[in-house]
Amino acid sequence: MADDLFKALADRTRRTIMDELAERSGQTLFEICSRLSMKHGLGISRQAVSQHLAVLEAAGLVETRREGRYKYHDLDTAPLRQITDRWLAPDPTGPQENTP
């Protein structure tokens, strides 16, 4: 799980996708692609964006939901707490076993 998270965060395009989803939740693939090309000048194929989204989804950072005929993507920042929990905010009750 931690490996998936750090792998997902290690790519600039995926971080940009997260920035855009943070700005507005519930985007279609088309909207995400529009934002990447029009706002960021990233000429990435729709397929490549889909693959980035799959990596983010595997890390728990993006959730997809079907609403009628449409599919929307939402950002889920909960997995990022692993980072603060691990290094920034140690549990005051005492040391715990670290994720390897």
Partner: peptide
Amino acid sequence: FTQEPLEMGPVTTAVFD
């Protein structure tokens, strides 16, 4: 609408069913 109005530089778009 599946995409609310979105300003992208000089262009604004929205998408509806």
